[in-house]
Design a protein around this nucleic acid. Sequence first.
DNA 1: CACTTGTGCAACTTCAAAGTTGCAGGTTAC
DNA 2: GTAACCTGCAACTTTGAAGTTGCACAAGTG
Lengths: 105, 105
Amino acid sequence: MTTATLIPVFAALGDETRWSILEALGEGDASASALAERLPVTRQAIAKHLAVLQAVGLVEPLRVGREVRFRVVGAQLNDTAKRLDAIGAGWDRRLAAIKHIAESP
Amino acid sequence: MTTATLIPVFAALGDETRWSILEALGEGDASASALAERLPVTRQAIAKHLAVLQAVGLVEPLRVGREVRFRVVGAQLNDTAKRLDAIGAGWDRRLAAIKHIAESP
DNA sequence: CACTTGTGCAACTTCAAAGTTGCAGGTTAC
DNA sequence: GTAACCTGCAACTTTGAAGTTGCACAAGTG
């Protein structure tokens, strides 16, 4: 598991509109058309964002009748958070070791 | 503390070159020129990336003689991870509650 | 003092992402 | 069946990020 798979997730999370979508989905599943009614962008734009979010596993589609609702995948966020924390901890450990070496006589 | 301050951090982490810089800095502080010697981009490009990383608190500059070395700030990564985990947990809780209501008779 | 080295600023090119409009195709509901 | 609604695909515009080149300036080093 490298950082390579992590970068697209952050790229997906680095957009304000996508966060609006995620927050809206956090209150319940919704379709692209439903999201377009409460967000200031077109349905097609939302569809593109949903495709990006789905590609990195942050949302998943589920057909309900003739519409396609999207559900937010909290587990992917938690997993990303864990990996991020591990990386940060690794840096702190290494830098602390370097500092220790530099300060030793 | 809203997600508004979080988005620029993810945007900063959503670039491969910036991860290369962060990983290089994880092995020890370095200047923009030093980083340019081991990365396949120009020093000026690296300087721009360092400015972005510094703006979101992921690195911090420190003058050493006539050069400006940069240090990775692991604490910012850990803080970001914590906030991310909290958001994901909140979504899971809410969606679990919705599911529970839907399944109750 | 001259020379080297590291940094900073500015203009330019390039490319991809974000967003729009327009239209075609399915699926449900009546 | 047909009308209404939701989705999907394609072409287009625009804006900003990433990267480059070029030059000017500051600060150690000999």
